[in-house]
């Protein structure tokens, strides 16, 4: 799923400029092809994200990582915005933080996120973001959609009630595993992640059962079977490594 220009591989043949700019009053320097998000994180400035995951392509969709840039009226998603010389970036202005809260609240209303009975309780990125942004309650009415749980796979299950449509599962399956079992059907508020022809996961012919989708899922939407409330802890340290191995230029090591 190619939706954004591939990062140039830096080499002597293709040098990239080093830029100096400001993030939250701090002077930082970075290459021109490093996203603002990544530069901020390297400098210990945290910007909340949900659809972004190191090792996967960017989507720019959750809008939580928006930042203000001086002289630019629009708010820019830091995961797909690249620095310019002398740019001044503010990552946590009052305006930005209030929008982030509202977006997160909208996500809570969209599906049935009942933390108390969730396998990922305590280890959930959505839940953690709510704490980080200081959300004490959700101001918008909950939509309570009627959604299914698919436990047909022998080892994993998908609970659409907890999905935030970050599409990490779709991306990891396509970009890293190479199976493209997952995709997203429909559009708008009725969008839903599917396997193959919207069939039970267990009957998928293309799923390799690798479980990468489960590990990258930020919430309890994808989980391992046999895990009870708060027991599902995701491990995804393999991702940057796999991305590096699969993206490397010389396809094989000298034998």
């Amino acid at each position: 799923m190619k939706i954004h220009p591939r990062k140039n591989v830096r080499s002597d043949l293709n040098p990239s400029r080093l830029l100096t700019f400001r993030i939250d009053e701090r002077v930082v320097s970075a290459h021109e092809d490093e996203s603002i998000l990544s530069v901020a994180r390297q400098n210990g400035i945290s910007i909340p994200t949900l659809c972004h995951l190191d090792g996967l392509s960017e989507r720019g969709a959750c809008r939580l990582c928006i930042v203000e840039v001086k002289g630019v009226a629009r708010l820019l998603p830091s995961c797909v915005t690249f620095p310019r010389q002398d740019m001044e970036i503010i990552t946590a202005s009052e305006r930005v933080v209030s929008y982030r809260k509202k977006i997160l609240e909208l996500l809570f209303t969209e599906r049935n996120h009942v933390c108390a009975v969730c396998v990922s309780n305590g280890h959930c990125e959505l839940q953690n973001l709510a704490v980080e942004l200081g959300i004490s309650h959700v101001r918008y009415p909950y939509l309570y959609p009627r959604l299914a749980v698919d436990a047909s796979h022998s080892r994993f299950s998908v609970d659409h009630n907890r999905c935030v449509l970050c599409l990490r599962c779709v991306r990891v399956c396509d970009e890293i595993e190479g199976a493209h079992t997952w995709d997203i059907m429909g559009r708008g508020i009725t969008s839903r992640v599917i396997t193959d022809l919207n069939q039970p996961w267990g009957s998928s012919e293309t799923c390799t059962g690798c479980g990468k989708c489960v590990q990258v899922c930020p919430t309890g939407a994808l989980s391992e079977k046999g895990k009870s409330v708060a027991e599902m802890i995701k491990r995804r340290q393999f991702l940057p490594y796999l991305q590096m191995m699969r993206g490397r230029q010389d396809e094989s090591w000298p034998k």
Partner: peptide
């Protein structure tokens, strides 16, 4: 749909995604 997916070499889930989008 399956036939089209195979012939065009598009993943099944992508065919379904486009068909419902």
């Amino acid at each position: 749909l399956k036939y089209v997916a195979r012939t065009l070499r598009v993943p099944l889930s992508r065919v379904y995604a486009v068909a419902t989008f």
